[in-house]
């Protein structure tokens, strides 16, 4: 054993060891490489902003922002082209709004049920079902909305068009459900046990406890879930592109079809889009609008969620 001998010279020998030196260099290099991987996310965001802004600049040079935001018609490929984003925005918000109308009550009930009512075994068994639902490709949901639900619904809802905002909205609501439930349930389960015990101690039923203690306690977390869910619905593409039609239509009637921002981008991408043309830059202008909307909701959701995490 080397219990005897000079520690200092052993230390120096270790420090001079080529093997350990190589290890130190590799470790230092990897630290930089890993940082680069993480920093890539910032680069991607910057690239997104840069591409959206630079490619839509030609558009905004031609079309004043006020026209873009206030004109009520969107007909970029017509001979007398009009460039008002309102029809696309209205369809986007109609569809996303209907999705929220479906996802909000269902999501709340499911989250409360999973967090407060279901036994752990039941919960473990049910979560995979929600995950499976989340795994279904959106194009499949689109097929389902257009070729199954819409024909079915037309028998009950008079005036429902073959392409409409109602059915894709409902389908999107079901689509974002797993996402909304998972975030709200996390928030609800993070509410301290002591609050639950307190509620039971004053004689509340489980339902009363859930609605007077858990939901208020998890309010910012649940709100974050809905904000993030709404952002998803706004950005969802295939369901609306397939089932809501591709005709820009400023309408107050969800039974009619109308193109959303995303559906418009899809429709234009399918055709021939010469790089540099005004038509080409319209999809970036539309994309920029979409990005700004989702960014606002995502950031709101992010900070609410973080605030909630800090609270508990």
């Amino acid at each position: 054993m080397t219990t005897t001998g000079s520690p200092l010279s052993e230390y120096e020998a270790l420090r001079a060891s080529p093997f350990l030196r190589r290890g130190r260099v590799l470790a230092a290099v990897m630290k930089v490489v890993l940082f680069a991987c993480a920093a890539l996310s910032v680069v991607i965001t910057a690239a997104i902003v840069w591409v959206l802004v630079s490619e839509s600049l030609p558009f905004f040079r031609e079309i004043p922002l006020t026209t873009f935001l206030t004109d009520t018609e969107w007909t970029p490929v017509f001979t007398n082209a009009r460039y008002g984003i309102l029809p696309l925005l209205s369809a986007t918000f109609w569809a996303a709004g209907i999705a929220m109308a479906v996802a909000t009550p269902l999501g709340l009930v499911l989250a409360v049920y999973l967090s407060e009512f279901a036994r752990p075994g039941v919960r473990e068994a049910l979560k995979p079902i929600l995950e499976m639902l989340a795994a279904v490709p959106t194009v499949v949901f689109g097929y389902f909305a257009l070729l199954f639900l819409t024909p079915l619904a037309r028998q009950f809802i008079p005036g429902l068009s073959g392409f409409n905002l109602l059915i894709p909205g409902i389908v999107m609501g079901v689509m974002i459900l797993p996402y909304v439930v998972s975030i709200s349930e996390d928030a609800m389960r993070a509410v301290p046990m002591s609050l639950r015990e307190g509620a039971f101690a004053v004689g509340m039923s489980r339902v009363q406890m859930a609605f007077s203690v858990i939901i208020p306690g998890a309010f910012s977390g649940v709100t974050a879930a809905y904000l993030l869910g709404f952002s998803r619905a706004v950005g969802e593409t295939m369901v609306v592109a397939i089932a809501a039609g591709q005709n820009p239509n400023l309408t107050g009637d969800p039974r009619e079809g109308a193109a959303t921002i995303t559906a418009y981008i899809v429709q234009m991408s399918l055709g021939d889009l010469p790089h540099g043309s005004l038509a080409y830059s319209t999809i970036f202008a539309a994309g920029l609008t979409l990005f700004v909307i989702t960014l606002v909701f995502n950031l709101l959701g992010f900070f609410l969620r973080r605030k909630f995490r800090e609270a508990y």
Binding site: S6, P7, L8, S9, Y11, L14, R15, L20, R24
Partner: peptide
């Protein structure tokens, strides 16, 4: 030879 294990210049890995 008084190698200071907690010395600032000493590499903790070594």
């Amino acid at each position: 030879d008084r190698l200071n294990l907690v010395g600032k210049a000493v590499d903790p890995i070594l």
